[in-house]
Design a protein around this nucleic acid. Sequence first.
DNA 1: TCATACATGTAAATTGTTACATGATTCT
DNA 2: AGAATCATGTAACAATTTACATGTATGA
Lengths: 171, 171
Amino acid sequence: MSLRMALLGLLTVSGPSSGYDLTKLFERSINHAWQARHSQIYPELAKMADGGLVVIEEEGPRGRKTYAITEEGSRLLREWLLAGESSRSIRDELALRAFLLPTLEPEDAVAVLREAVLSCDAKLDGMEAIRRAQDGKGFGRYALELGMRQTRMFRDWAEETAEEIERSIRS
Amino acid sequence: MSLRMALLGLLTVSGPSSGYDLTKLFERSINHAWQARHSQIYPELAKMADGGLVVIEEEGPRGRKTYAITEEGSRLLREWLLAGESSRSIRDELALRAFLLPTLEPEDAVAVLREAVLSCDAKLDGMEAIRRAQDGKGFGRYALELGMRQTRMFRDWAEETAEEIERSIRS
DNA sequence: TCATACATGTAAATTGTTACATGATTCT
DNA sequence: AGAATCATGTAACAATTTACATGTATGA
């Protein structure tokens, strides 16, 4: 259901778009929270058109199909968002790796954590650039703020944990 | 591969455990980063036993099977953790919902955010209780700390974003 | 004795990844 | 002419969820 909602959301804010457009939009916007390849997006759009959530608004060159969200699609998205469902489904490989770290020798764990800090810094730089480009505007701005806070939090945790492990090595 | 690594990690720190134990451990430890149901865990353990990553150490009452990690399993886990692979695959439904929030009427968005704050507070209380019980010890303590920071971060974001939207409604 | 927790599995359906496959348009 | 980008799809496989299915031990 989540992929479907993500597509409905993107169609809501970006207007009628092709599967190709949506694939690119995915990469540039929600990528830090959700991922989808074109091979998943195309069939999903077809199913959604079948179910009346979107319509093919136009067919262009190179077989391009432009999808637009329907009333029914908008209603479904709204209902899904309002139905709180605090069942947070999450699958975060980085956090999983962090969790498993204490199974390593302390020295190895510290090295991995230090590397994680660097990778977070790089990620933050990228996000900062996007934010500057958007200039505090744009649909994705709340999510971007959340993504940055998330990354910063993880970064700090990794750094502090590395220090803690180092202290315990020395003592 | 991630589920497999998670199971190897849990077997490393908790010692020989049954599928049932591991299912419970999953819920109480990495749940904020990765999820798995018993229907996924049981077949995975069987496959891992097939591949020599774990062995059935003991069969107890009620058909209980106790699995233990092997040398080969330990080696695989270690290699996986050291092979940085910054390909962070992430799928976070809560963040996705946050991203889609601006498609709602501002009033609805605020209501959803307020509810999220309450749900985070409840979750934090539960985590705090676990922490007090563990008294700063145990393998899961880094992960618990990370989980709490994550929840607190999201809570604050939700609260501040709700306030920001309210300000923009009034102006 | 009844509820709860222990304990394991399988089947079907859905979701997601990787690889395969094709072809048009645009820019250099 | 050749490369990059646009543009769409399918097939095979892997991962995950939901529902079905069964039965045992323990404590109130």
